[in-house]
């Protein structure tokens, strides 16, 4: 096996190399899972309590804001959204922190750096699955058994995670040089929370007396389509389905992924110089 080092900036995704580092991907992922709730009294209990608190708060609040549905329906829908949003937002945060929080490894050994952001997804997924079980119990109590639409769910999860990963990756790369990201990101996620149909349904937002361009921007947000697709897979009705925005959401996601990976690869070789 021959390796060449040059002053070239760009790096490429080398499938053969990634395969060789599959073990590292696994152990980095598992490390994050094992370590997340270490030295907490409740341990993985936090994976239950955090979503539970969010479900109760936002379920109740959302009914106060939007009374167009009965309380039970509204509560179940919002809790689904909250659980899914927690997955998407923690994925963005964890991915964007993955480089700076592993700077000790980054500056000491060579490996395909893309493994770091990628391996921080697993722990988010495990938290999500635990929260999702809580949600399913709630669903069962209020609504009975889910319909066949639920078969779409895995697809929606992957789709949502791809977009979150892309956003996280851009911030991860930028944060190597600019630690400002750490402060900006929580605000951005908070804004996205209200600008996506988690707490306020898209129906409710679009009914408001808002300037048209704001409504267009709102619908261009890929998370609107992603969350509505999530709700569709669970409840069987698609709020404000618009083929144009469906396409634009997919397109933006693909572009975001391509851009973020390219941006990452362009800087990959300089990480150790700046971090």
């Amino acid at each position: 096996m021959k390796t060449v080092i040059t002053s070239e900036d760009r790096s490429f995704i080398d499938i053969r190399e990634l395969k060789r580092y599959l073990g590292l991907f696994k152990y980095l992922s598992l490390r994050d899972v094992f370590v997340r709730y270490k030295q907490t009294w409740l341990g993985f209990g936090w994976s239950i309590i955090r979503p539970l608190i969010n479900i109760v708060i936002f379920g109740l609040l959302s009914y106060l804001v939007d009374k167009s549905q009965n309380f039970q329906d509204r509560f179940v829908i919002v809790s689904g959204g909250v659980v899914f949003w927690q997955l998407l937002s923690t994925a963005i945060l964890d991915v964007s922190n993955s480089l700076t929080s592993n700077s000790n490894i980054l500056t000491k050994v060579y490996f395909p750096k893309l493994l770091l952001p990628a391996s921080s997804i697993l722990v988010c997924l495990i938290d999500f699955l635990i929260a999702f079980v809580i949600f399913l119990i709630l669903y069962f109590v209020f609504k009975g058994l889910p319909t066949l639409h639920i078969l779409l769910l895995p697809l929606v999860l992957v789709y949502g995670l791809i977009f979150s990963f892309a956003i996280g990756l851009v911030f991860a790369t930028a944060s190597v040089k600019f630690r400002d990201i750490k402060f900006i990101l929580p605000f951005l996620i908070q804004i996205l929370f209200y600008a996506s149909p988690v707490f306020l349904s898209s129906e409710f937002v679009l009914k408001q007396n808002l300037p048209q361009f704001l409504k267009v921007i709102y619908q261009l947000n890929p998370f609107v389509f992603i969350l509505n697709a999530f709700k569709f897979s669970l409840f069987g009705t698609f709020e404000n389905f618009d083929p144009f925005y469906a396409c634009s959401s997919v397109l933006i996601t693909v572009l975001a992924l391509v851009f973020s990976v390219k941006y990452f690869l362009n800087f990959e070789k300089s990480f150790a110089d700046y971090i």
């Binding site: 021959k2 060449v4 900036d9 050994v109 060579y110 070789k269």
Partner: peptide, 20 residues
Amino acid sequence: LSRIVKPTTGRIEFEGRVAS
């Protein structure tokens, strides 16, 4: 040589697996 930082100029070739 361990490929942690890249050189500003020049070229390095090596044969085989490297561990640093």
